[in-house]
Design a protein around this nucleic acid. Structure first.
Lengths: 203, 203, 203, 203
DNA sequence: AATGAATGAGAGTTCATTCAT
DNA sequence: GATGAATGAACTCTCATTCAT
């Protein structure tokens, strides 16, 4: 019972800190954000920060990990259930939906993906990259299934298709992040997939 | 300010420093790279660095600016010449080609685009963003022309199409950066545009 | 203050804490040892530590005081009882014996004696120094008595003699501490005093 | 020539810093002294400190090393030249003389010898200890030679004699350090050695 | 009375920037 | 004009101390 309260409190602190870190890192960036800022933002002391996370890097790493796990969990369901044709839409919708709900985490996510800064990569990069790659993999599976079901063209390498749809999704997210996350995001899923499937050419 | 940029450009020192900075920032990232590292990489003293650039931020900003200008110059030609249908392909091919030739600058570019770190944004973010927006604008123009010429569908907002093609291009570049810039990049232009125009659906 | 020391002494907690502190400080040194380490070593909580001692410094001070009092109590007897000639040997033997029994306290003792660190001096230095000076004083008395009894030479200032014997004792203790307190120590008393009295010159 | 100026300046800075560190560490102790204090005491900036020494520990280590080398160099001469009987006096006189001239370094020296604090030991402890052991070794050699020359008694283990004389010397130094290094020190050499050789017993 | 999580001042260290040479 | 040693503000992280439970 004691332990449960303890572990509950521990995880509550962790979540509070990570929530604040997510806001702060997205807002100011990893380097700009100081540990004292994070402490203030989380409503705790610097010492408490270090009670729950051994370093600034590890705060970042945990943040990325937490997001990745949530993100992938919902994605996996969509990528493996339902009709092949619907799966692509499912993954896209879920991706946009997750991003919209998790606020700016995806910005960090992409940040890490794009970055070369070795200290951040050490902290969360590999995790994030692994997550990103798994996401692409889920898309690839969904598309492969669709190819095999005969609803997606065979004459183009699947990876090119993966790139096309993932890229379109990315750009939506970028635009949404740029708009300060005010517009709806997940609502774009259908149209994005439609254009992807039908192409831009007039008919 | 313009004049200062010009006078920078005329200086061989400036170019040398920016060349070194491009390599270094791409390799180690903005924060990881120290001014003394940059001095050594450029073969000059720290003092000389500060003779030509007032701060680290401004080195970065100038770098982005230089890249942007080169990038947009070649893009503008493609977006306004030739048959409407070919222009999209022209822009995409030029984008991929520029990126391939400028090596990792695009990595920095995207870094800044994706980043929210206020100090870097101050340094080069606005310029880079402006450049990115102009690039999207060029794409939008090319697509609008194609719509008007009747070769691209009317029933979808142009911005969605812009997103689709820009996203597909981005993803190619990401993949190329991840592969450590060893694979050919510009060669993908045709297929990317083809999938964009024809769609993924089998027929 | 005296009263407080008394009340400290009556508390079993105090003794437990001081015992742990003695081990810990000797092992790791004053600065290296953390209050949380001390709490764990003593089997109490940090809060309890602060219930009995107002600060880390005062733990150290009390430690030194406790050792000093025990040390001097046995010494005083030897310095004032028995034949004058034997008293020097008595003091030396008691000193070595106390040190051997109290384990590493003397290491701390000397640490404080030798140290100039103002915070530690504040904590225990003056007490320890007073104790050390009283010890030298007891030696001086014993030697003065021996001079008056005609068994020790008159032609050398007593302080020089005090230094000679105290120094020889110190070195033995140092050597013993260096050997990790494994060799017998008190057993050296006779020989030390013999060389002191007879001198090194061959005859 | 450039290089010589450079190396001269470098060593001048080093010396200045070490001089200040010696004063400061002796005065306030290793832990109490802050790097910013040291910078101020040396008349340089904190950054400069770190240009010449990679860490606080290494400042301390270098300090100990510098003192040890000076100390031993003069000692070695005395221990190997002249008549056997005079060598002991030579070593003692040189030891006291070095200490008197080097100010409080010996206090640090002994501090390290007596201390158990692992971080300081790491920094300078082994060097200091090695130096101290070599000093004792020089004494042992001088005494062994004297024994063989027949001027010092055979019936007592040499180590006991080494301890007796080294202890007497130590105590003199302690007393001198306690007196804030105001009294003459080297002047005691003859009497210390005389008592050591002749013993305390009246005759 | 006892606990130990929370606190926050203060430590060592780094590095963008300056300026005497 | 070019240099790079010197600067010191600002960072991350530690740990003696406090106080709600």
């Amino acid at each position: 019972m004691r332990q449960r309260i303890r572990s509950y409190a521990t995880s509550a602190y962790c979540e509070t800190i990570l929530d604040a870190a997510e806001r702060l890192f997205v807002e100011s960036g990893y380097h700009e954000a100081r540990m004292s800022d994070l402490a203030r933002a989380a409503g705790v002391s610097v010492g408490t920060l270090y009670k729950y996370f051994p370093s600034k890097e590890r705060v970042f790493g945990s943040l990325v990990l937490r997001g990745r796990d949530e993100f992938l969990a919902s994605m996996r369901r969509e990528a493996t259930e339902g009709l092949p044709e619907d799966r692509v839409l499912g993954v896209v919708r879920t991706a946009l939906d997750s991003v919209e709900r998790r606020g700016g985490l995806f910005a960090l996510y992409v940040q890490v993906g794009a970055l070369t800064e070795s200290d951040i990569r050490r902290a969360g990069g590999e995790e994030a990259e692994a997550g990103y790659l798994e996401y692409l993999d889920l898309l690839r599976h969904a598309l492969t299934d669709a190819v095999e079901a005969g609803v997606v063209r065979r004459d183009v390498p699947v990876d090119l298709l993966v790139g096309a749809i993932a890229g379109a999704v990315n750009i939506r997210i970028f635009a949404w992040v740029k708009s300060e996350r005010k517009e709806p995001l997940a609502a774009h899923a259908e149209k994005v997939v439609q254009v992807f499937l039908e192409g831009a050419r007039s008919r």
